[in-house]
Design a protein around this nucleic acid. Structure first.
Length: 327
RNA sequence: CGCGGGGUGGUGGAGUAGGACCACGCGGGUCUCAUAAGCCCGAGACGCAGGUGCAAAUCCUGCCCCCGCAA
């Protein structure tokens, strides 16, 4: 049986859900607060937050944040001791923080003070770090800045994708919280101030950051593909005109081709003609779609053309062979 | 009513009114020392419902489904 703790949980995405799954093995929060649905997706439909749906399914008290005033009333009813945040997506006003006698603690997927800010997991992969971890700290008035309760390191193999690492770090966060929360509520923990001199910051990413260049090397592609999927996505542009595109390179002649998975080919396995392929050119080998990069040859294993479904490189080749080898 | 693309054999595509085509896969045959090879033969499809036309995959109307962008 889970023990009910006098805490309120704040979360709004998959990281929060992975965390919650771990947390719920031992405890239950008084309440989960998530963000209210906003118009999104195709047709701007209202779609409930995944955390909201998760809590309904797990039969946990959950409310959507309408405004902070309403939430204050909720707090005065429930009288929580502390708050726990895992990827909430909104800054909590100081006024609200003050209503929690023990404060609010945050689960952050990096080894603070490194990788503060909104994208620690993605940037960790992009920078090819060989270690990362999860940090539990108490929030204050600056982003990811408060005193640290505990942190735990994990080693990276260089093969992790965003989704894998997100799940792993969230789970670790749950385990850490489970091991300290009761002591925390009894004020039995020592805190460690962050050394701001060692701090690094991550920035918001945009679609633009997912662009892959045909003349980049394999490592760059690999890092981006692992770090930037499913969002913001990694892609190249290919010419979509069937007949001689030479007379015009107008933008409408190009379509975005998302690239989800590539696989490096040993050069020794390739025949001579293919080794002569120019950088950035496609080729066909053993019924698979290949692409020559700056320093290597890869198979495109999983791709998606604008407006089409995600498909294997092989399937893409079946239909778009003429488009790709028009020359 | 945010913008846009699309539903064609098992898979991915071409095809804007009159023989449904291509690639891969599948079945059979054949060639080779051999092949994720070649050659021959074959099965199998136009999302649903109406409408216009001598004739509809193609034009019109309604519905269902899939997807990209933007946020």
């Amino acid at each position: 049986m889970s023990k009910i703790l006098p805490v309120i949980f704040f979360g709004s995405d998959n990281f929060s859900i992975h965390f919650l799954k771990e947390f719920l093995k031992k405890y239950k929060p008084l309440l989960v607060l998530t963000l209210s649905p906003k118009p999104q997706g195709r047709g701007l439909k209202m779609i409930s937050n995944p955390v909201f749906l998760f809590c309904i399914r797990e039969k946990i008290n959950v409310i959507e944040l309408k405004n902070w005033q309403d939430f204050k009333k909720k707090i005065s009813l429930l009288k929580p001791q502390a708050g726990i945040i895992a990827s909430f997506g909104k800054i909590i006003p100081q006024e609200i923080i003050n209503l929690f006698p023990k404060g609010i603690i945050n689960v952050h997927p990096s080894l603070l003070p490194k990788y503060r800010g909104p994208n620690p997991i993605r940037e960790t992969i992009l920078n090819n770090e060989n270690e990362t971890g999860t940090t539990i700290f108490i929030i204050d008035d600056k982003v990811d800045h408060g005193p640290i309760i505990c942190k735990e390191k994990i080693n990276l193999s260089g093969k992790e994708t965003y989704l894998e690492l997100e799940e792993k770090l969230a789970k670790l966060g749950g385990q850490l919280i489970n091991s300290i929360i009761e002591k925390f509520l009894k004020n039995q923990l020592d805190l460690e101030t962050q050394n701001d001199l060692l701090a690094t910051y991550t920035k918001k990413l945009s679609k633009q950051d997912g662009k892959l260049n045909l003349d980049d090397d394999y490592l760059t592609w690999d890092k981006k593909i692992r770090a930037l999927n499913p969002w913001p996505g990694t892609y190249i542009y290919i010419c979509s005109k069937k007949t001689s595109p030479e007379n015009s390179n107008h933008q409408s002649n190009y379509k975005m081709l998302k690239i989800f998975k590539v696989e490096k080919i040993k050069q020794g396995d390739l025949p001579k003609e293919i080794l002569k392929t120019d950088i950035g050119e496609f080729f066909e080998f053993k019924n698979e779609l290949g692409l020559r990069l700056k320093d290597s040859f890869v198979f495109l294993k999983e791709v998606q053309l604008e407006g089409k479904k995600k498909m294997s490189g092989k399937e893409f080749l079946n239909g778009f062979r003429k488009l790709i080898f028009k020359r």
